[in-house]
Design a protein around this nucleic acid. Structure first.
Length: 584
RNA sequence: GCGCCCGUAGCUCAAUGGAUAGAGCACGCGCCUUCUAAGCGCGUGGUUGCAGGUUCGAGUCCUGCCGGGCGCACCA
């Protein structure tokens, strides 16, 4: 479906023919030969760098390779012009019928437009969100949720077998703190005066609900007993409640994970001991003393022997502790078990979406994956930078209700999940993102969500008018694929087809680079091309899509409109955004 | 001190190692009896932080500086 790939195959074939003919020496490495769109459309539709990358190994000048190659390429039907330019590019222009044919294929592909088998069914695990169950999700989590979900959609689209995973950090000190905070709210619900929330406990009002629910279920059962008696049960209860809240928040964003893995269950099942045993057998565990970080020695630093994993043997800067002071496992140790479990379930390819504050954790986890899988596993980490939440240019105040952060829910309730999802993908994940609650719902050109949705709605508007004025024309993609597409001759019409034709390449590129934001930029450009064409019909009635006196031409143009609509819808679908048919 | 990320037009940001570095905003000038003007077109605007290096070719890769962000045992 990616026609650049198809042309690359042909060019490689022609290069082989040139080798057979003795024009080129044999045995050339062709892996670096690329076929891509020239940056400047004036250079043609597609270009290859073959002559330049082969010049050195062939011991020839680029032109000496380019000219005979161009000679052969000119003989192909689809290629109307082929010339050598610049330092040795071979530029090609494709025949109009080629583009018409491409539009027809797009329309027939329907929902599969842009799909490919790049991934060949390879299993990929994407772990994202994975927020601690100690509070509601924040706007920061929203970005991770959107990026992870869009990556999942993207990789599915190009043929990977994707598993969407959430790792629940329900072990360790933070959930104990949660339990204590919830217990306090529980006593409050039973009528006690609890006063100020002590330092170190979670102050958010959302825990009042948890306290009340516990009081309703268990009455005063846990009120006057020792902490050791109530903690495990209150903890379990609070985690369940908060995970339910998390799932609700995610559902409000349209995010649904396939698997929730519990750190506690993993640990209790002995998975960490297994990891330890595995690493010990390979001599990767030892007891040692770590150096304090230079220039920033913690106040309470004490030199003492710790159980360490030899992460430095796998690219990390230092070796990493796997037991805490009290002998329990570190978060890292449990996370190793988590990654080993994923690997064992068949996911040699793993992607984690983390907040930028976890950047310092990347190397050790990658080192762990290497060590635990004998180098067979591969972990990619996408770090999401901060989201700066603004309202009309001013930073948004934190709400007390939630515990001094802005929740995902507040934002979704205010602007809608589609807006959140789209805007979160308008920046590279490792760049900071400004999210202005007022701007993102503005119905104007400088709001990319609106701009793209408007183009999609305009397509539907045209199709609705067509239905009313020329009911004899069938408007579904399959029917329109049969239209006489050779009637599309205006350079802007052809230009739009060319742009649409780039969709599969865009999808593949975004998937390979793990960069879903490219979809948002591409859709913005498609929308711009469409708006331009639409407006041209205002200036020149002959360019309007609907030509009542010429049904054949109308059908061809409606095919283009449908193709645009399908492409935008296809992109929004991967991003998890519902395309709008009307904006009124 | 060390590690990771970032540095591109006045602002916010694009650009799988490719040709003359692109959009939007802002600024200036045009376009509404019409399928949604909630839009379109034209113009102004650049030493890609600095200095070297690799390459036929560097915003992109490597090294060193400068500036900003994040992190740095026993939290997650």
């Amino acid at each position: 479906m990616n026609f650049y790939t198809a042309f690359r195959d042909r060019i490689v074939r022609e290069l082989a023919a040139l080798q057979d003919a003795g024009t080129l020496p044999g045995g050339l490495e062709l892996a670096n030969v690329k076929v891509e769109p020239p940056r400047d459309p004036a250079h043609g539709d597609i270009a290859t760098n073959a002559a330049m990358v082969l010049a050195k190994p062939a011991g020839m000048k680029p032109r000496e390779i380019a000219e005979p190659l161009a000679e052969r390429l000119r003989a192909l039907d689809e290629i109307t012009a082929c010339e050598v330019a610049g330092p040795g590019f071979v530029n090609m222009r494709l025949a109009t019928p080629f583009w018409a044919e491409l539009l027809a294929r797009l329309l027939q592909a329907g929902r599969d437009w842009g799909a490919s088998d790049l991934g060949q069914g390879t299993p990929v695990n994407i772990e994202y969100v994975s927020a601690n169950p100690t509070g509601p999700l924040t706007v920061g989590h929203a970005r991770g949720a959107v990026v992870g979900d869009a990556l999942a959609g993207l990789l599915s689209k190009v043929g990977y077998d994707v598993c969407r995973e959430y790792y629940v950090n329900d072990a360790g000190g933070q959930v104990d703190t949660l339990a204590r905070s919830a217990h306090l709210r529980y006593r409050e619900a039973l009528g006690e005066q609890i006063g100020q929330i002590p330092e170190g406990l979670y102050p958010g009002d959302y825990l009042k609900d948890v306290g009340r629910a516990l009081a309703e279920r268990d009455g005063a059962k846990w009120q006057a007993v020792d902490e050791s008696a109530w903690l495990p049960e209150v903890r379990r209860f609070a985690i369940d409640q908060l995970m339910a809240l998390v799932r609700e928040d995610l559902a409000a964003m349209g995010v649904q994970h396939d698997v929730f893995t519990s750190e506690r269950e993993l640990t209790q099942a002995g998975a960490v001991e297994e990891v330890l045993g595995y690493l010990e057998a390979r001599g990767l565990i030892y007891t040692g003393v770590l150096e304090p970080p230079k220039g920033k020695k913690p106040e309470d630093w004490e030199e003492r022997p710790q159980t360490l994993f030899k992460a430095s043997a796998f690219g990390d800067d230092v070796d990493r502790p796997i037991r805490k002071h009290d002998g329990s496992w570190t978060y890292f140790a449990a996370d190793m078990a988590n990654h080993l479990a994923k690997y064992r379930r068949g996911y040699a390819r793993m992607i984690n979406v983390w907040g930028a504050d976890h950047g310092g954790y990347v190397k050790r986890m990658q080192a762990a994956v290497k060590a635990l899988t004998d180098g067979e596993g591969h972990l990619h980490v996408a770090l999401c930078q901060l989201v700066k939440l603004l309202r009309a240019g001013e930073p948004v105040k934190m709400s007390k209700r939630s515990g001094n952060f802005v929740t995902l829910r507040e934002v979704v309730d205010e602007v809608g999940k589609d807006v959140v999802r789209f805007i979160m993908l308008t920046r590279k994940n490792d760049a900071q993102l400004e999210f202005d609650l007022e701007k993102v719902v503005e119905q104007s050109k400088d709001n990319p969500v609106f701009y793209v949705q408007y183009a999609h709605a305009r397509c539907h508007s045209v199709l609705r008018h067509a239905e009313a004025e020329m009911p004899e024309i069938a408007l579904d993609g399959t029917a329109l694929a049969q239209a006489r597409l050779s009637r599309l001759t205006d350079s802007e019409e052809i230009g739009l087809i060319k742009y649409l034709a780039g969709w599969p390449r865009t999808v593949e590129g975004a998937a390979e680079a793990y960069e879903p934001h490219r979809l948002a930029f591409y859709l913005h450009d498609v929308a711009a091309a469409f708006h331009g064409l639409w407006t041209k019909g205002k200036d020149d009635a002959a360019l309007r899509f609907l030509q009542p006196d010429d049904p054949e031409l109308t059908r061809a143009r409606l095919a283009l409109v449908r193709g645009t609509q399908q492409t935008i819808a296809s992109g929004l679908e991967i991003m998890g955004v519902d395309p709008l048919e009307e904006l009124r």
